[in-house]
Design a binder for these strands. Structure first.
Lengths: 222, 222
DNA sequence: TTCTTGTCACCTAGGTGTTAATAT
DNA sequence: ATATTAACACCTAGGTGACAAGAA
């Protein structure tokens, strides 16, 4: 079982239409994708990883006059599909469960030639982050027959549009209001405002758990 | 096999009599204890850790007039002996060997009641850092009968005196000259510093960079 | 006297959106 | 027109020794 952290904040962004900046050098996500994990075998090894799948086959553009997203045609050619393995991997179930698992090292880029291992995305396209838990079988067999059981978790409220600059001004304002690193752009005293907006509502109800076998074509290489 | 990183810098400090600051909140070591590892089993799990043993049973004081350390009596009562497990532990041999292992999260304190897991030391006492490699046997047996093989590595040039404030002014100057975080205390232009490259002499192919001041006579005039 | 503590200015290191310039 | 880039001021977060004040 997996619980999305900061769900209330994700929901706020989702309602406006989440945007994530992509840069040549690589940009972190905000909110950061973080989860709490339950029910792992404490002494077994797991690899945790994320990837990003296109939501549809469309390219979008933002109509500033109507403040809405419009379809701008078919999707551009696919970017090289990459995965991000959580840097603590592999680790025991006990270690993953004893604290929040944070993907704050994950960065998004639009650079086809990126060699920093960042996730490559097409700007103006929509993506769904996916979280994969890979169970490492301890039995020593032939490497061909090693069983790897995947479990994939998808949180629909983490969908976003990749952009090189924010399009929806309300997204910009929400980022400024909620990201500590953007405090320099706040124009009012944030200390009253912040506690009111984001006091934690960690409801496990809204967590969607999906059991999915990763198709061979999408299986992480390397 | 284990190789000490920045051996040339450690040697420079050692010749002057290395001092390490201890504070209530905990202070990092400088130079940082870092090693390169060789000859581990790539697929086996290892735990890497450090501890600190008293060099002798003495307490010291510094004679400023003669710029030398004097014995000031017998050692104070022992501090609670703690270990510092490298936060990446446990990890596979392959992972430890593929990059420098750095103990930059290790902090020294003189606070008996410390509950941050820092190493507790007596000020004005001498210590020898030790590096331990613990092999985790993969065979599943009773937890009582799990075999753990230790191997301990000691680098004499990493010995130091714990202090609450630097005693030897030349140590202070070398710290300021070589620790990037102390750049604010350097009294000459940054451009007057250049990077020289040395090759380790003993048991070491490692390249060590040491900051060296350009003599005034060789400085470019504007 | 000798040693310790807390505060401080000054750094490193790196994450923000802004803005102006530049592609496409 | 629309989208992207690079430089920038302004942050977070935390590691330095200096210094004055306090403690033993």
């Amino acid at each position: 079982k997996v619980m999305l952290e900061m769900k209330a904040l994700w929901d706020e962004f989702h309602e406006l239409g989440t945007e994530m900046i992509v840069t040549k050098a690589g940009r972190r996500m905000f909110p950061t994708f973080q989860v709490k994990m339950f029910g792992l075998e404490p002494m077994s090894d797991y690899i945790l990883l994320m990837d990003f799948v296109p939501v549809d086959d469309k390219r979008y553009r933002y109509a500033f006059h109507s403040s809405s997203w419009l379809v701008a045609g078919k999707a551009d050619p696919d970017m090289p599909r990459r995965i991000h393995v959580h840097p603590d991997s592999p680790a025991k179930g006990a270690q993953w469960m004893k604290q929040i698992v944070s993907f704050d090292k994950l960065k998004l880029t639009n650079n086809l030639l990126d060699d920093n291992g960042h996730i490559i995305l097409n700007s103006m396209h929509r993506y769904q982050p996916r979280f994969h838990v890979v169970y490492i079988d301890g039995k020593k067999g032939d490497s061909d027959t090693v069983h790897e059981n995947y479990k994939t978790f998808i949180f629909p409220e983490t969908k976003f549009t990749a952009v090189t600059a924010y399009q929806n001004h309300r997204i910009t304002q929400l980022k400024i209001a909620s990201n500590p690193f953007a405090k320099g752009f706040r124009d009012c005293d944030p200390d009253d405002w912040r506690t009111l907006t984001f006091h934690g509502r960690n409801e496990s109800d809204s967590v969607v758990e999906v059991l999915t076998q990763i198709p061979p074509s999408q299986r992480p290489r390397n």
